[in-house]
Amino acid sequence: MFTFESLDQHGNAVNLGEIAILQEEIPAFVHSIVQQGIMISAMHKHWIFMEPSLLYLHIQSVEPPLNFATKVARTFQVLSSYPVAGDE
C-alpha cells in the first residue's frame, strides 16, 4: 500500500508505504531503500506462526511522489521472489 499527502508549493509530499516482504529478503531490501534516502519507520510481523515468514516494512519520505515511486520500484528489483496472485 502506498499513499502520499497533499503537495506543497515545491511539489513535495509526505510519501508512505507498507510492504510485506519475505524475512530472508529483508537485509537486501532495507539496504537498498535506505541507500536511496527513504526512512524505515517500522518493521513487524502481523502473524507470528505464518509460513513463509513475512515482515511488514513501513517506509516514508518527503519528496515528489514520482521520485518516491521510482526509488521503491528500483528497490523491488533486489527481491528474488515473485509476487503471488491471490486467486491461485
Rank of each mutant, 00 (worst) to 15 (best):
Leu22Ile: 07
Gly17Met: 05
Phe49Val: 07
His44Asp: 08
Val34Cys: 10
Arg74Asp: 13
Met43Asn: 07
Leu55Gly: 00
Gln60Asn: 11
Ser61Cys: 06
His58Pro: 01
Ala69Leu: 12
Ser53Pro: 01
Val14Glu: 12
Glu51Lys: 14
Ile33Ser: 00
Glu24Met: 08
Asp8Cys: 09
Met1Leu: 08
Gln36Ser: 14
Ser81Gln: 12
Ser41Gln: 12
Leu55Thr: 05
Gln77Gly: 06
Pro65Thr: 05
Leu57Val: 12
Ser6Asp: 15
Thr70Trp: 00
Tyr82Arg: 12
Pro27Val: 08
Ser61Asn: 08
Ile19Pro: 01
Val84Met: 08
Glu88Gln: 10
Tyr56Gln: 04
Gly17Pro: 04
His10Ala: 15
Asn15Asp: 10
Ala28Val: 13
His46Leu: 14
Thr70Lys: 11
Gln60Asp: 04
Ser80Gly: 09
Phe4Thr: 02
His44Arg: 13
Pro83Cys: 03
Leu79Gly: 03
Ala20Gly: 15
Val72Asn: 01
Val62Asn: 02
Glu24His: 14
Ile33Cys: 05
Val30Ile: 13
Trp47Cys: 09
Leu57Cys: 09
Gln35Trp: 00
Lys45Tyr: 08
Lys71Cys: 01
Leu7Pro: 06
Gln23Asp: 14
Met1Phe: 08
Val72Met: 07
Trp47Ala: 11
Met43Tyr: 04
